[in-house]
């Protein structure tokens, strides 16, 4: 296992994309820290994670 700070990487990426919600950042952070990430994701895992991320993405207040 490589010694790397996932929190720092996610923080750096959020600095570039401040609109990203805590929920999305949290989900990706968990994913990147988990054992699951030690192997290549299957198609099903990618789809499931993608759906979770889309559901967790932040609400945007929109006019017309």
């Amino acid at each position: 296992m490589v010694d790397i700070s996932i929190q720092e990487i996610v923080k750096e990426a959020r600095g570039l994309h401040p609109e990203i919600s805590d929920a999305v950042a949290g989900k990706l952070s968990n994913f990147l820290s988990s054992d699951l990430n030690a192997s290549e994701l299957s198609i099903i895992s990618v789809k499931q994670l993608t759906e979770e991320l889309l559901n967790a993405s932040k609400e945007i207040n929109e006019k017309i």
């Binding site: 990487i9 999305v24 990706l28 991320l53 993405s57």
Partner: peptide, 14 residues
Amino acid sequence: VREAEELIAFVSSL
């Protein structure tokens, strides 16, 4: 669409 695009940009940055 905007939410997904922002998400894509975020994942791309990561």
